[in-house]
């Protein structure tokens, strides 16, 4: 049985950092849509939306800043834009894998529950009544 492949923390750390920053940008962007409907319910739709756009901009700014530092976050891609686009594609694929796994786990859980034997028998119910 093999253990760790030829993989050092120099490969793993940029992946965690890129993944964290991109997941932050993508999740914030998705929450931005929800923020609009929250603002709509408060009759001032633009105020919280503006704050969330600032949060996303901070995410983008931080990502670009760290990728521009060179080896730190730049993986096998040649430019900042290429790395940024690759990060977004990579994280979308990972999130899809996570969501599919979540759907399957919930499906198995729900199927197990609906096919289990009833915990309260009919006779016991009528006795209680």
């Amino acid at each position: 049985m093999h253990g760790f492949p030829d993989l050092s923390m120099d490969n793993i750390n940029p992946r965690i950092a890129n993944s964290t920053l991109t997941a932050f940008i993508l999740c914030s962007t998705f929450l931005l849509g929800n923020m609009y409907f929250y603002g709509e319910s408060r009759d001032r739709p633009l105020a919280p939306l503006f704050a969330m756009i600032i949060a996303i901009s901070v995410g983008f700014g931080t990502t670009i800043f760290f990728i521009e530092q060179g080896d730190m976050l730049l993986e096998d891609n040649g430019s900042v834009i290429a790395q940024l686009v690759y990060n977004i594609s990579h994280t979308i694929v990972s999130i899809f894998a996570l969501m599919l796994a979540f759907g399957i786990a919930i499906g198995i859980l729900f199927s197990s529950l609906t096919h289990s034997k009833a915990k309260i028998s009919g006779t016991k119910l009528s006795e209680e009544e």
């Binding site: 920053l21 993508l26 999740c27 949060a55 994280t91």
Partner: peptide
């Protein structure tokens, strides 16, 4: 191993996004 790094990053990023959403 890179996927484990990915999943850790996604969890951290999502938690940070939810915290900033709650703060707003």
């Amino acid at each position: 191993w890179l996927s484990i790094a990915d999943l850790v990053g996604i969890m951290l990023g999502s938690i940070l996004a939810i915290i900033s959403f709650s703060l707003v």
